[in-house]
Design a protein around this nucleic acid. Sequence first.
DNA 1: CGTAAATGTTTTTTT
DNA 2: AACATTTACG
Length: 731
Amino acid sequence: MPSTPAIDQLLEGLNQPQRDAVTHPEGPLLVLAGAGSGKTRVLTHRIAWLVHTERARAGEILAITFTNKAAQEMRERVELLLGRSTRAMWVMTFHAACARILRAEAPRLGYTRQYTIYDQADARRLVKRCLDDINADSKRFTPAAVLNQISDAKNRLRSAEDLGQMVGGYFEQTVAECYRLYESELIRMNAMDFDDLLMRTVNVLELFPEVRARYAAAFRHVLVDEYQDTNHAQYRLLQLIAAEHRNLLVVGDEDQSVYSFRGADIQNILGFQDDFPEATTIRLEQNYRSTQVILDAANAVISRNRGRLGKTLWTDLGEGDPIRIRELEDEYAEGRYVVGEIDRLVDEGVSLSEIVCFYRTNAMSRVLEDTLTRREIPYQVVGGTKFYERAVVKDAIAYLTTLTNPQDAISFARCVNVPKRGIGQTSLAKVRTHADTVGISIWDAAADPGAVPGLGTAAVRALERFMTTMAGLREKVRDGVPVGDLLEAVLHETGYVEALEAERTFEAQGNLEILEQLVEVGREFDARAAGAEGDTLDLFLQQVALVADADTRQDDEGLVTLMTLHNAKGLEYPIVFMVGLEEGVFPHSRALDEGGLEEERRLCYVGITRAMRELTMTFARRRNVFGAATPGLPSRFLAEIPPDLVDEDSRPSSAGPAMRATTWSSSQSSGSAGASTGGAVDYRMGDDVVHPAFGDGVVTGTESGGIVVVRFAKDGSERKLMAEYAPLAKR
DNA sequence: CGTAAATGTTTTTTT
DNA sequence: AACATTTACG
């Protein structure tokens, strides 16, 4: 029997709970998977098992992952297990699945199949325009903040009307008004933002029962990874699709929920048993990744959180090395320390690809990058300025978008005068107004520039030339020219490449190389999509719009990896550095303001549990924030790690107080922490002081850890300074 | 209309 | 400090 050994193979090496999850017969299943407990294995083996035992055909499986990269990896692993293609399987992110459903169903909502997907920058630009249109006070209503509010509403499946009807003050009503206009603008331009992809899919499924029935029947088995990070729209989507077969398998860990700012609702995983009373729950608590010391530290930190389902990780990998905590002078010393350690590790035979450095915010990567570059250590940054967010790439994409979606005024505006063609803001505004008044698309208005009132003859001629070029390119789109060739044609016929070449700068050269990469991406897409139907350009644009920075990570390269803690989820590295463990940085001050301490702690838990063998955490006494030196105290998370797990000796920074890992939490209460610095001055409320940068001030308070609060006369600002280190003097 | 200077904004995290 | 947007001027 050929099937028996294969099934054995599928279950081989799995522990009992993993095996139970993989062979779960039918019905809802909740897998609470601690960090490093092999949840990806469970998911891949489960899918393979379903197909292999003919409980589902490939096309009946919908598997949701958090990133495109994870989807791709999952697909590859399932293919390896099954030994056959998984093309019919839906293995993708929520957003990609929704985009795909909407490509088929969006016409029911008044969109065309060629709808544009706006990224956050596009969306913000549009919100800004809407705010201007409704004359909102630009001081109180920043586009980013309002877009956040709109995004929150959409993630809760609330329409602009819903929001307007809810009682609320002036602020809420203005947001609702902006939302209403923003929404009608999106529809007019045949565009959706990221949140729309989810909400519109839910709309389609709710409004058209026959559509819902079709997808609900099609997906016999639905599997969801990182369930703790789903928001309400995603939750509702799963209910609509999975309520029938009830074969919903969700895998998650409430301790790793770190996306509440994106609307993720931890209640989704905490309440799964209430939603599906017949659900089975399986816990995976054996960790196959980290040493016991690392797990003990992680367990100790996360145990401070409330409202957990509760689980304790264990391993049989042995104790391992203690966690190293290091105090550095500033972020440069921190960078030098980390890079020095990397050097040492490399000498010991460690591969660069085994090393990762995590930080709280993207901006913190720069110092590390500089230091690595100086020491000539190759590295990769995951996140930061993403390929598809580079201005040149967005320009090129805007051209393609304009060609396929002529209603998209944002993309049109982006490319119409790049390179410079003499069609500036004033002319563009006239065209736009004309289009709005007559009720035609911006493309149609521009196609007949003579009819636009008040447009100068030079602008008319420029527009005519531009539109002739674009019309020619549109012919190519109609003829089904491959994406790679089309991109090439666009870049040359519009004069884009020539303009860059004429610049003759180092930067322009780099941009040209980036564009070559983009053309290459197009060609690769063509190669893979060969034989598909005619509208490959739309598919390409859809795919490009949903690429995330986490997807750009490379493995098996001789590169050190740098990334934010948020990007770290789901990954593991033998050697982990966590930098910037300072109050205000991590936990981030803004998160603290919003009551997000527990989420910050979960983020810390995620970081710690990425480490397999060695974990080093650093903090700096001084850090430049917004270009100004800011004193820092060790993060409270450091004090939450039991002292006996920490290596306390060999402080790299000779200067400064000899704070021990075990003592900094207690020493914070004494006014002059650390003691050993000479000349520590006691400040009292009301003392007149002077600061070289901020000028004269008066002490308005003192806080634990040797912090004085000073109000400065010059700008009336109140600042917290560390009495010991700040260049502050009594008068 | 385009350039350069001034001004404002940003840094929390992302599909 | 870095970058985007707005303003002033040629």
